[in-house]
Design a protein around this nucleic acid. Structure first.
Lengths: 225, 225
DNA sequence: AACTTAATGTGAATAGAATAACATCATTGA
DNA sequence: TCAATGATGTTATTCTATTCACATTAAGTT
């Protein structure tokens, strides 16, 4: 399967919700494609793959689409996450209210030794020693890592052994699932990791900006020649 | 060219710096591949594409690699960015010290109307009205968008017209370069945008975790049958 | 100096994803 | 009722990224 499809689905859904709020009832593959910057064919293909049917001439019913997508994304299931590392980035995520809208709630934050009982957003910050128990008790499956580089791998291992299966990692360490995590799920493996390395992302922007500027300069030279 | 190569380059570089700090002098394509989760062939191909030469039997000299990569990534050029939106996420980025290490500095933060002169990290927060001038004066090319959804497109347009060419966007709005931004750079276009939508990313984690769990359950059923 | 080894460098093969193209078929309108 | 239209659904194609496989060659070994 295509990893990107699910990301697109999430984006379709958000767009559809906005269109619905504007009073629209139907949508064409063209509309969705434009908004996401892909071709209409790909949109139809995505839907076809997901067994979502449209009407031969009337496009797709927005309500139906949203419902179908929700059921595929599992919106109905509980979606509680934990945030490990309650420094600046961790706190920002805990207090980010763009998650609640999608049914994602922060069950708790964790930090080495919170000096006092503290809330960030609506969620309590607990000491790392509580992690195992909390994850087990609350059946948490997904976690955010927002600790400094030095702590990242240790924290990752703690979370793995606590049973966290999906990771959003903001530390600059590139975390990986172990190869054998696929079939025999021992307590040393996970399912999916999304590493977001801010420095890498920004460095990448600079590269492309610089390169394009060089390109422009060349073209400019040629034109004035 | 391959968009992913540059991201990998950044990652190679970080890894190489760590290896160097450990006292290593040479590295094999295998080492780098393992760390990044790709094959050694791809590592060699990346280097080959970038005209980086290794030694037929002795791998690559770490110092040389780092230097080559730095020159390709343009590490020597100034790398100042601005952060627009100084709420929780914007502030977290401004105070994140993982950027300085890579020569990335925050030139300033911007917010609608900062109620007082304020610093976040080392950078001053300025009112949006100063944006145009500041970007021009300081030749800023790259910016982070960390404003609420409602403000995102307006802010984006302001930044575009100020001359920002590369964007890291944390707002839940999917920003796009206009199609015609490629060749004739008018003042309504940009070069590269990286959208990071936290809700989408987390939703994606849940999907994959759920799907894998279902898969596991099936396999478990079959085994106990 | 010849032989073995162990890495690089790269052309071919494969896999994967997106686009293009078109056949299909509901709906509209004459 | 029948043709024209305009969207979907799907097959074929293109494009891109990655891996495979191996020829190459530098370094070490006898």
């Amino acid at each position: 399967m295509n990893k990107e499809i699910i990301l697109r689905l999430s984006k379709y859904k958000r767009l559809l919700q906005k269109l619905k709020a504007l009073g629209l009832e139907k949508v064409f593959s063209n509309n969705l494609g434009d908004a996401l910057g892909v071709t209409s064919a790909l949109v139809r293909k995505d839907f076809s793959f997901l067994k979502i049917k449209g009407n031969k001439r009337g496009g797709y019913i927005i309500d139906e689409l949203i419902e179908e997508i929700d059921s595929i994304l599992g919106q109905h299931k509980p979606r509680e996450i934990i945030v490990v590392g309650c420094g600046k980035i961790g706190t920002a995520i805990m207090q980010y209210n763009g998650l609640a809208r999608d049914g994602i709630t922060i069950a708790a934050g964790f930090d080495i030794l919170p000096d006092k009982v503290a809330y960030k957003g609506d969620a309590l910050i607990l000491p790392m020693s509580e992690l195992d128990n909390f994850v087990y008790e609350n059946q948490i499956k997904v976690g955010v890592i927002a600790v400094p580089e030095s702590a990242a791998t240790a924290v990752f291992e703690k979370m793995i052994s606590a049973g966290i299966l999906g990771y959003l990692n903001f530390s600059p360490v590139e975390l990986k699932c172990t190869k054998d995590s696929q079939i025999p799920l021992d307590n040393k493996s996970c399912y999916v990791i999304n590493n977001i390395n801010l420095a890498v992302e920004i460095e990448n922007l600079f590269y492309h900006v610089n390169r394009k500027e060089e390109l422009m300069a060349e073209i400019g030279d040629n034109n004035t020649k």
